[in-house]
Design a protein around this nucleic acid. Sequence first.
RNA 1: GGGCGAUUAGCUCAGUCGGUUAGAGCGCCGCUCUGAUAAGGCGGAGGUCCCUGGUUCGAGUCCAGGAUCGCCCA
Length: 1035
Amino acid sequence: MPFDPLPSVPDHPALEREMLEFWDNERIFERLREQNAGGPTFSFIDGPITANKRMGVHHMWGRTLKDVFQRYKAQRGFDQRYQNGYDCQGLWVEVGVERELGLNSKAEIEGYGLDRFARKCREKVAWSAEAITEQSRRLGMWMSWDSDYFTFSDTNIEYIWRFLKAVHEKGWLVRGQRSTEWCPRCGTSISQHELIGSYRDQADPSITVRFPLNDAPGEAILVWTTTPWTLPANVTAAVSLDADYGCLAGGDWVAVERYPNERFETRVKGRELVGSTYTGPYDHLPAASGVEHRIIPWDEVSLEDGTGIVHIAPGCGSEDFELSVAHDLPVLQPVDEAGRFYDSFGWLHGLSTAEARDRIISDLDERGLLVHAGEIQHRYPFCWRCETPLIFRISTDWFIQVEEIRPKLRAANDDVLWVPDHFGKRMDDWLVNMGDWNISRKRFFGLPLPFYPCSCGHLTVIGSLAELRGKATAGLEQLEELHRPWVDNVTIRCDGCGDDVRRITEVGDVWLDAGIVPLSTLGWRNDEWVDAGNGTGAAEGLTNAPLPDHAHWERWFPADWVSEMREQIRLWFHSIAFMSMALVDRLPYRAILSYEKLLDEEGCEMHGSLGNAIDADDAFERMGADVMRWMYCAQPPSQNLRFGYGPAEEVKRKLLTLWNSVSFFVTYARIEGFEPRLSDLETGPADAELRPLDRWLLARMQEFIDEATESYDLYLTVGVARSLDVLVSDLSNWYIRRSRRRFWEESDEAAFRTLWYSLVQAVRAVAPIMPFLADHLWRNLAGRAIDGAPDSVFLAGWPEPADVLRDEQLLADVAVSRRAAELGRSARQASAIRLRQPLRRLVVAAGDPAVRSSVERSVEELRGELNVKEVAIVETPAEVTELRVQAKLDVVGPRLGKELPALRELLAAGDFELAGGVLRAGPHELAPGEYLLQYVGRGGWSAAHDGDLVVAVATEISDELALEGRALDVIHEIQRMRRDAGLELTDRIEIAYGIDDGLDRVFAAHGKRIANETLAVKVAPGTGERLVIQKAPSR
RNA sequence: GGGCGAUUAGCUCAGUCGGUUAGAGCGCCGCUCUGAUAAGGCGGAGGUCCCUGGUUCGAGUCCAGGAUCGCCCA
């Protein structure tokens, strides 16, 4: 018996675990790779996933897409790398460790010890990588799990050093200042991507403060601020050049527009205030004592809030800082890395910004400078790690200048295939606007920037471990790996003066770590292949990833395709583009698939705190990986995905139809002992005695495979999902439904072979999306059923379409007759006569002979389905409808132009003649093909139409028909009684009927039929009730 | 402030080159099958295609302006 019976419903999780074990035991993935080795290459480069936690269902979307296309390309015979990667250092990793250790500041980390801290970070990464690997395997991802790359390997770090040295040689490396969001607790700046989603509502003071003007005694400008602690750092005030400013009665200057109810003694344009000097609120403290406060112009001054005059503290805001650069203003930095005032701020020394706030307000009040104090609710950023409100600080950092590379990146981006395509524009927008790349972070467990600035003015940038060894003057003996603290202890000889020089303590931006991957993992400019050569430094023992040689790089660079979530446009997609362009003058990718956000089924973001997050392991158990994968793949990537158990049920029902179809096949194939042939997969059952319906399904299969292939090639899984939906419905509701008897009564070889072929091809084509279900079904239908068949669907290649099975005409014909059946049902429904009532005549009219002949083939279907005595197929529906004519607008429109509306009126009014195929209406003549004939129903008919395809039923019911209708009602009634009585399908019954209500006439005319349909062995008039049945005594 | 999207049925979304009557799934209502049955099938109701203007014989579709929502940048 070749096939195994299917349970009535698939148990996805159980089936998936079974397949995982099978793949493992039979080394399916390894065999697939061996099979494809040496074939054409498809290069995919995996963006590293941060190894600091287990994955959630939002990670699985991207992991699924990666796996889908690698599996698809493998089925197409492409040789591939399957290297997974982990992001292993930087803030994201430090955070979890810091939390676990209960550390709460940089000082505490230093107290704990950088070496122990680094070891803890590595442990965290190792733990997370293992968890992610296990979850990914459960999802069905096929990767070479023993050769993952880890961005904290010494090899990866060396490659970044090489990049930084090259950047320095190009003259792009600079040290500079910038104003940045800063967490006073963590003691570091917060990068833009870390700010995502970190804004909350917060109440802050809203105060208006007076700055006295120096040259106009008694007069002052008013400024507004929500951050009183920044006032000691005030340097200037900004006005809008063209706005009107006025002086209030008390001598205070404000923007007129902001005070519509006030009267102003004097009014001037903002430009006239520019250059005036004023006394700052804290000029008496040492820090601000030497500052001359001169009013400046700024076109960003808001007239929507505040006073229209803006307090500028370059040490406390990014726009403020930029203004200080533009206007050459001094910068006062009020607080240190921990957010406490410097001693040059007198009595404020040592206070935090929160502590200083109220004291400053009351101090201003006492000194008569406070005009108004209130409170405001607004959005304010918080540290995503520790919930501390962020402040702005000036920080000295290292930058890579981008002006030279910007145009190259933009030009190259034009040639990238972006899916969805508008993401390409977003990349361009980013490239146009990106500022110099800030690469330094004042933290611990990260890429050690190899910068050794010397007091002689020379900057030495180390490009490799060998170079470091060569120039080292001390500390090599303790250098365990290229991380702090060990690397900090290595001093080198300055290239400029020969003195000993130390590394700066900063570490690198994580996007350097990830950005070098297309070079570091592929062995760019590496002379000799080194086994496990990427498992160095912190990565030693975690992976066997090799360091390949340059020839390998030539073979696999650039990637044909990469895929990550949308945020990566300005992160990973950008950093790999930047670093590759800088080093090898090319982009590292040809095509990119990116996708939007994953939300819960209500459309809300998933958050642990909201309780709506779905645990991945929970999802595996409750819906199964295939169902999850289907949801990810059925989603247009340009839109947010609503993910949840509700939608999962819908998907399960959908998949159940495919499952039921296979189950139906298997049930009868077992009964009839059907033996499938592998060779049918090449050409289909072309040599069998095929009926039109078989040929139709076979033609549909070619069309489906074409559609699926095209969608995969465009990197759009949603197209595959949609095509499969339609196919499954065709296969189950049209083919199987109409062919059932051929399977259980006729044992029709052609039907079995056609259905087997179609099910197997469908399973193969969706295998990349649902690998478990697909391989499970393949094993049952082919892998185990046929000697010599590939063990796994993934070893069976791609279901190539067979041209001999294509039949466009047949597809069109069937579409027409299905449409006719649909119209017939619609016409019946519109007649308001119940379907069980037989009607005399159904008329199908179509002008096109091809349409008529294809409807001819489904006459039986129409007769049975619509319960009519006869079906007529005619050219014009004159019998049932009146004629109407419509112009073909797309043909006639361009010819007639403005006269078209008049023509349409004539046609609508029936004011036309039709002779010899030519239509005359008023002054116009329409040739055949320029108009369409249309019909409306006559009395006694109920009609429905689609274009000139008209279907109508006669609504008149003769006595004879009425009697038959009653007979069918009786059958229905008895069937219901059988079921209510709990009878088996095969139980025989006896019927007794009452003679009133005309039932005697019904049984007289149709008794035999009623008995037949209801398995009645005895039918006789009874004594009382109108219908009584009882189970017949068994013989 | 600049940029990129989106706005179509109760919900989630399709809608090709501008063409006559704008579709699907889910939900709802009704009908139906009982040899795929923990199912299945059919039909129906339900629409100001965000608004305004323009181009055109004709606009859900193209153009301009606006509104709202989301995202990116400043």
